[in-house]
Amino acid sequence: MADVYSKKQDLPVYAEPNPSASVVAKLKFAEKAKVVSDQNRWVNIKTSSGQTGWVYSGNVGDRRPPEENKADLLAPSSGVDTAAAGRGLSEAAQQYAESRGYVNAASDLAWLDKENASVSSADVKTFMKEHKLGEYAS
């Protein structure tokens, strides 16, 4: 049986291949599971503790994610829209913008941060449901 690894921390393992099903287990970041079968982008897995269930294929990979990816999941900006918008540029980036005459570009970047932060994780979930994307396809 092939192995898959969780890309996320506390990835839900569902009783059925849809995100409305009950959660029977959770996988930690980079946790390995055995592939039992797959069906329409859903993967039936068996966890190291022997629990079987379904994960969406986009949430797991066939190679272990690099350890440094965990920093993304722990960073204050991870999925936090307001924090990302209010964080501001690093001093190094500010200095670069000033020294190269890119003040307008820095202003654009600040606008971009806010524009992106205005789209929350919940908004993206709604969009994906409306367009039947990813785990919300069926």
Binding site: N59, G61, N69, A75, S78, G79, A84, V124, M128, G134
Partner: peptide
């Protein structure tokens, strides 16, 4: 939507 299933889903 794409980023959600990338190998760095926590990146901003």
């Amino acid at each position: 939507s794409l980023a959600k299933y990338s190998y760095r889903p926590g990146l901003n």
